[in-house]
């Protein structure tokens, strides 16, 4: 069964602004805020223990879509189902879905505010109305998953390094034990080690809790490593929702919207064109190395 299902969701920022704009039509471009990207008829679904990678340029509507998933933005048309329940059905119950569908914003460390790491992570569980024992258990678990050591629990989150702050902020969402984890460019601005640790934390959480993950990233290489399916967006429209193979096979389509296959795939495609290997449907370094080694050894055995 689908854990989360997005059905024909459309949203435009302009209709609210339109009314205002009509009144002050004479304003120049200079005086309008950048129109945030709208989304148009997006449909996809995600199952337990599945990772959906979302790609698209800035302005493709990724961030807008992410905020409709947990009800922060109400779509103009279409809706989001969580375990078959329409999350927008009852306005008063909507906030409860935010605990089930955890949303990690871009640069989430900017939301930290408490005196200690531990207190900050317990903000979410506290809002859920859990008892203290339960809160403590969840917070400790969440901090463990993101690899924050016990001696940092009582430190101020502002004393941590950039990568640690990011992971504490992630733990703040994980402590609510969401069944769907939605992340908007979680690795932006981190160094290679920080990126790796963060992605590992996300995958560990998914495996331990059988959760679904929806992750926005600019890095094809990262997405290729962890995703089961890809959702490709362009200017608010859904270009594709399909397996890695089917998305990357259509390279022209990706290039036409300014995206491309992972670097390693480019190498494999070039090698296949030269007739040196016979399979270029690989998207990670590991797979590519296996294929080249096999070709290599295969030909030596002849």
């Amino acid at each position: 069964m689908n854990l989360l299902e997005v059905k024909n969701v459309s949203f435009s920022y302009n209709k609210a602004a339109n009314k205002k704009e009509r009144k002050t039509k004479n304003k120049t471009d200079n005086n309008k805020y950048i129109t945030k990207a709208a989304i148009n008829n997006i449909s996809f679904s995600v199952k337990n223990n599945e990772v959906i990678g979302v790609i698209g340029h800035t302005g493709s509507g990724k961030s807008t879509l992410m905020q409709t998933l947990n009800g922060l933005i109400k779509p103009d048309s279409g809706t989001v189902y969580f375990k078959g329940n329409n999350i927008f059905l009852n306005k008063k119950e909507l906030y409860k879905f935010r605990f089930k569908i955890g949303l990690v914003f871009q640069y989430p460390e900017y939301q930290l505010f408490e005196e200690t790491v531990f207190k900050d992570v317990s903000f979410g569980p506290k809002n859920m109305g859990l008892d203290e024992e339960n809160i403590n258990k969840r917070v400790t678990e969440a901090l463990n998953i993101v690899g924050i050591k016990k001696d940092l629990f009582s430190k101020s989150p502002f004393d941590l390094s950039g990568g640690q702050k990011r992971r504490v902020a992630l733990a703040g969402i994980l402590a609510m034990k969401p069944e769907v984890l939605v992340l908007d460019e979680p690795t932006a601005g981190l160094d290679p080690v920080g990126r790796k640790m963060l992605l590992n934390s996300i995958i560990n959480y998914k495996n331990q809790n059988d959760a679904a993950v929806i992750i926005v990233s600019h890095s094809m290489e990262d997405l290729a490593k962890i995703s089961d399916k890809l959702l490709v967006l362009n200017e608010g429209n859904q270009v594709a929702f399909d397996t890695l193979n089917n998305v990357f096979k259509n390279r022209e389509r990706l290039q036409s919207i300014g995206l491309d296959v992972p670097e390693v795939t480019k190498i494999m495609i070039a090698l296949k064109e030269k007739g040196l290997i016979n399979n270029d449907e690989v998207y990670t370094v590991k797979e590519a190395a296996d294929i080249i080694t096999n070709t290599f050894r295969g030909c030596c055995n002849d």
């Binding site: 290679p192 790796k196 670097e263 390693v264 190498i267 370094v285 590991k286 190395a289 080249i292 080694t293």
Partner: peptide
């Protein structure tokens, strides 16, 4: 030093590790 390799270089290093 906590860095990473560009993906093409990473591929070559992986091949080398495999004895090529």
């Amino acid at each position: 030093t906590g860095l990473a390799l560009p993906q093409p270089t990473e591929l070559l290093h992986t091949l080398k590790e495999k004895g090529i």
